[in-house]
Nucleic acid binder design. Structure first.
Lengths: 117, 117
DNA sequence: TCATCATTTCATCGATTCATCAAGTGACGC
DNA sequence: GCGTCACTTGATGAATCGATGAAATGATGA
């Protein structure tokens, strides 16, 4: 590593940071949320409650297979839960904290749109 | 599109969703946050205030060039701001809302670690 | 102006991601 | 059992990402 820099940096008290696994987990959550189609799915589930895959496919105008793949990633990140009822599989937001994350992200994205103020 | 499904879905009142640009912007924010190294940078800036690039390079044990690239992405997503002071360039969290997002994501990631309860 | 330090940009390349299609599984009704 | 509907999985390929080293830029001071 050709690392950096000779000069004296302001010797701050080294702030206490989250543990690596927490950061890794956080990043994986955010990455899972960080795709427009998946974020849209999360929003739909957060706002409208549980939906089955075929329903989500129609609503997002996509192949069921594609939607299933997206849900798979969301499930891998533990952002959604799954429930089978006969032929159908219903997905829902895993918990309120996830719903909150979705809401704040969209809120923040919406806010700066009018830049005004 | 070989779309899906014959059966009648529960005819929910179609929930009002965010506009596509908002979702796109939200996703781009989340994607920028969704990498362990970049999330760590954000955390550091959120917790310890502004830092210059060389300082961040040392702290994250990475090439300055690499750190600069990461900061570039964060800046493209408007998550951090930049200030030049002589030879140095100082980066900081763009606004409190971003800091909040970082905090809630890490908080959520930390919470479920003990699964217990 | 020249040298030097801090930072950015560029080009490269291996790794990941995403949508799609085809094939597989699982539950139901006949 | 057999067919069918709802869904998942696996394989493929195009697109994008992320780290790196080398070359450029920008500010400072001699």
């Amino acid at each position: 590593m050709t690392t950096a820099c000779d000069h004296e940096h302001p010797t701050r008290p080294p702030a206490p940071l989250a543990e690596p696994e927490v950061v890794a987990r956080g990043a994986s959550i955010l990455r899972a949320m960080g795709d427009p189609e998946r974020l849209r799915l999360l929003e739909r589930l957060a706002v409208g409650g549980e939906h089955c895959v075929s329903e989500l496919a129609v609503l997002s105008d996509a192949e069921m297979s594609t939607v299933s793949q997206r849900l798979r990633q969301l499930r891998a990140a533990r952002l959604v839960s799954r429930r089978r009822d006969g032929k159908h599989v219903y997905y829902a937001i895993a918990d309120e904290h996830v719903a909150d994350l979705v809401r704040s992200a969209l809120e923040h994205a919406a806010e700066e749109r009018g830049e005004a103020r």
